[in-house]
């Protein structure tokens, strides 16, 4: 299947979904006014990928900012990934946060509490 490669903008993140490698990365900032419009193709991609997912699938989330409308869409991303796990395949979420960014660490922990997937919290130096 085709990969997704999106260049980040001032409002949307850089997206690299690679089906052959089984890596899904969302990096940068996610603050669009209409997040559903942005995330719908990503969710559709995950559904298709899920039919023949790699084992394991590694999900890299490295966000600087995200708005609450994106937070709902990010939850949907994790929910689609949960389905892959239900099929007996491994899915690992690597949640990145910058040193001192307690809010971003906490945001990761919020998802970790809601979603049934293993999360690894990775601290990175401020860019």
């Amino acid at each position: 299947m085709e990969n997704i490669t999106l260049e980040g903008s001032t409002k949307t993140p850089t997206v690299q979904f690679d089906a052959a490698k089984g890596t899904l990365a969302i990096r940068g900032r996610s603050i669009p006014e209409n997040s559903i419009e942005f995330y719908t193709p990503l969710l559709d991609w995950i559904d298709t990928y899920g039919k023949d997912a790699k084992n394991p699938t590694v999900v890299i989330i490295q966000l600087e900012y995200f708005n609450t409308s994106s937070s709902k869409c990010i939850l949907d991303v994790f929910k689609r990934l949960e389905k892959i796990k239900t099929q007996g395949k491994e899915v690992l979420v690597k949640w990145h946060y910058e040193t001192d960014d307690e809010d971003m660490l906490e945001a990761g922990e919020d998802y970790q509490a809601i979603i049934n997937l293993p999360f690894e919290m990775i601290e990175v130096e401020e860019a």
Binding site: E64, E98, T99, D100, D101, D103, M104, E126
Partner: peptide
């Protein structure tokens, strides 16, 4: 600090 900057921006 990065903390304040991010909070204000958010």
């Amino acid at each position: 600090s990065a903390t304040i900057r991010k909070k204000v921006f958010n």
